[in-house]
């Protein structure tokens, strides 16, 4: 399933990386601890988090993540969007909380540990 399909099905808002929406997503990872993501997120997975500051972009780049989904309707900081555009990282946001977002992704076939 592509990021675009996920975005459509879950009614997500795209904040950056409009050109990255054709990325295939097969796995997800949920954490607000950046080191946890660095250490344990599968390469290419979709990352669900509350964190919206600029440093999430670097984590996504270093782990070659498919994208970032912010939850509870949180919008990324302005400089986060700028960095994401520069590095080609897709940031989307969900009005729902982390648990519901992850559950719906799981229904769509996105696997997690």
């Amino acid at each position: 399933m592509t990021l675009r399909e996920i975005s459509d099905r879950l009614g997500l808002t795209v904040h950056s990386g409009c050109d990255r929406l054709d990325t295939e997503v097969t796995r997800g990872y949920m954490s607000d601890m950046l080191s946890d993501v660095m250490g344990n997120a599968p390469i290419g997975s979709l990352w669900i988090t509350m964190q919206k500051h600029k440093n999430i972009v670097a984590v996504a780049v270093m782990k070659s993540l498919a994208g970032i989904v912010l939850v509870k309707g949180r919008a990324p900081d302005e400089d986060t969007v700028a960095a994401a555009e520069e590095e080609g990282v897709a940031i989307l946001s969900s009005a729902q909380g982390a648990f519901a977002t992850a559950a719906r992704l799981h229904e769509l076939g996105v696997a997690g540990d």
Binding site: M33, L34, S35, D36, M38, G39, H53, I56
Partner: peptide, 15 residues
């Protein structure tokens, strides 16, 4: 609060 300092940095490096 920024999501750092979880005590996983050095273990990650070692891994």
């Amino acid at each position: 609060e920024m999501g750092f300092g979880a005590g996983m940095g050095i273990p990650n490096i070692r891994k």
